[in-house]
Write a protein that binds this DNA or RNA. Structure first.
Lengths: 208, 208, 208, 208
DNA sequence: AATGAATGAGGCTTCATTCAT
DNA sequence: TATGAATGAAGCCTCATTCAT
């Protein structure tokens, strides 16, 4: 005992916390459970984080950074609309598989009822992606790739709506079960991707 | 005081609880706050509910009953596919406006990580609606109203996904703000309904 | 159990707290000990006091009110200097016997190192008594009852100093023991009073 | 780092601890604060002291040694009563100026409620000085320097009482403020000394 | 031998739950 | 029967103490 925390253990604090917060919600999450999951004593968490709220904030930031990084992979080659969409759907699925706990936490924070916090969060999370979507769609509409009667804002919103629900469906027990109910089976990632794209492209008038 | 609780007050317990649970989450919700909001004493809640968990369960049931009732309004005249869809979108918007707190609670429970509970919830909530959707779509596909290459399960799922996000966007501080970011303004119900339908119909190949 | 607190018990919270704070100091005092001494559960203290600091504040206020009341008994008949002095000494002894725990708390608060708090406390505690003393002495000097070369401020201070030490000597284990060491025995109240007066009167040039 | 502690640093532990204990009280004093103030690590304190209580004991002993030394300066030339008194008052003032933190700690320990500890402390602290006072006064009374009706024990006690309050008035925020309230100004050391002596001599019947 | 981070006991505080009124 | 204060378990957090480095 009294062994110095490894780098790994310090990181484990955050990941354990993300899992705990994501599963229990802020109120039910216990510092002691987080510590136990991280294999450390509860007290040491306070060496790294001011208090429970600060730890939660750090978890949030960690997840948002991840989302930023995921999205940034698409930005670069914003060439072909169809490709971008396919990439986005694929990334949503991959990310959901890689870090379902991040999406559960993300789901948690959307529950905030503090209007000010809601605004800050919304800007932080969607600020970049919404612009990417909207601009891409505007361009696509101009070049005739998608229907001209589409409002870019709405369609960006709906597109993100669908991606979000895909993530939830892969990350949350309830949504996964719900998906199974609708489909009658657990879909493979490829199948899911194909169907989502077919749906979206149809909505955008891109289907042939 | 010491007056028997009126029918109205007993109902108020439930609605106050739904609001509190929906806003604070289960862990942070306080029995005393619920009692205060309901205008009764904290103790009397335990005359009607075993404990906090049971009260939460009753809240949930109350919301689900409401959803059942809303959906049942569509069942009856399952004639025209297009009409049904329009009705569903409209109902989603109306219900979200009428009882945003129900949807906030609904959002809460989707976070459960208990697989067994997830299954029960999913069956309870989506069981009926998914069948309605799926069967309607199957029929629509057969009669040529929608594209034939659609998988009814997936499209029912995506349809419900979109409706769900519409509800969240109208009921949650965060999602409302997110919608505003995408659209640049706060949409009217009519505008929202029109755009959703355009999106969905496009996806279903029903657009002209 | 769960018996409603009697008026007596509610008062007991304060007196137990005064004793605990006076004996242990703020830092070592335990809410649980106070509750136990008061014969109640720890939680209920928070129904009556915001937190530990607020409870301490209330204890302080309670003691200061008592001191105010004690001093106010002298004010009224501020006629004869000698009588007043005798009364003051007597009151100090009686009060110390009646509520030694108040004086222990008083002793505690004089330890504050926060300058702002020190100022507030000093004004609150000595504001009235110092003026009483000083004015009485000024009057006494003018009328020739006491030496003319006395500075009223200093002699009021020294008078209060002596009274304060008398109180401490009766209320604190250490000071009581110290007194016994000096005197070789435990003095009666009457003896103590007589000796103090002889000392003071000598200092004031009132001794014949 | 990892350099052996210098003699100076070891002393610094004690002085830092005296300051911390004197300002915060035993309960609120933090080992980590003491270590920081001493410029060493917290752990090393336990190489020199068993635990917090032992450290406190050592602080106390350190202060008492200082008091012993101060008093011993008077012992030697116990010739003239008046001179001795003047010296004692002066020493009290000088010592209070030199090591106010010692007197703050001294103030702290007088609060002990453990009777056994109280006795030990009292003997340790006052044992020597009280005898010095008492014997000197006895001698003075015999030789007619002071009034014959004085009880040496009482007057030694009262003399020490006044000196003690002088020290507190110079060392504690609260008592300093209290003194200012009584006097209307902050006195110089010389002024204070003169007034104290005038007061004491009057009490002892030594005034002309 | 000193460091300073880790431990974990223990104190404050909250609130679900109980029960005397 | 409802009330609402009392209970006490449990969670957050602090800090004296330990010990790997």
């Amino acid at each position: 005992m009294l062994k110095k925390l490894t780098e790994e253990q310090i990181e484990k604090i955050l990941t354990s916390a993300i899992t705990e917060f994501g599963e229990q919600g802020y109120g039910r999450a216990k510092i002691s459970s987080i510590a136990q999951a991280a294999g450390i004593s509860a007290g040491v968490i306070y060496k790294y984080y001011e208090d429970k709220a600060a730890l939660f904030g750090a978890c949030l930031e960690h997840c948002l950074d991840y989302l930023d990084r995921v999205y940034s992979e698409v930005d670069r080659n914003a060439g072909d609309m169809e490709d971008s969409m396919e990439q986005l759907v694929e990334l949503a699925i991959i990310a959901s598989r890689e870090h379902p706990e991040y999406f559960r936490l993300y789901h948690q924070i959307t529950l905030t009822q503090d209007p000010e916090e809601a605004e800050i969060l919304a800007s932080r999370i969607e600020g970049s992606s919404s612009k990417i979507y909207t601009e891409a769609l505007e361009e696509a509409r101009r070049s005739g790739v998608v229907k001209e009667d589409l409002d870019p804002g709405y369609f960006a919103l709906f597109f993100d709506d669908v991606l979000m629900m895909i993530s939830f469906s892969l990350c949350s027990g309830y949504y996964r079960e719900r998906m199974r109910l609708y489909l009658g089976h657990e879909p493979s990632d490829a199948e899911l991707k194909e169907q989502v794209l077919r749906f979206i492209k149809g909505a955008f008038g891109m289907a042939r």
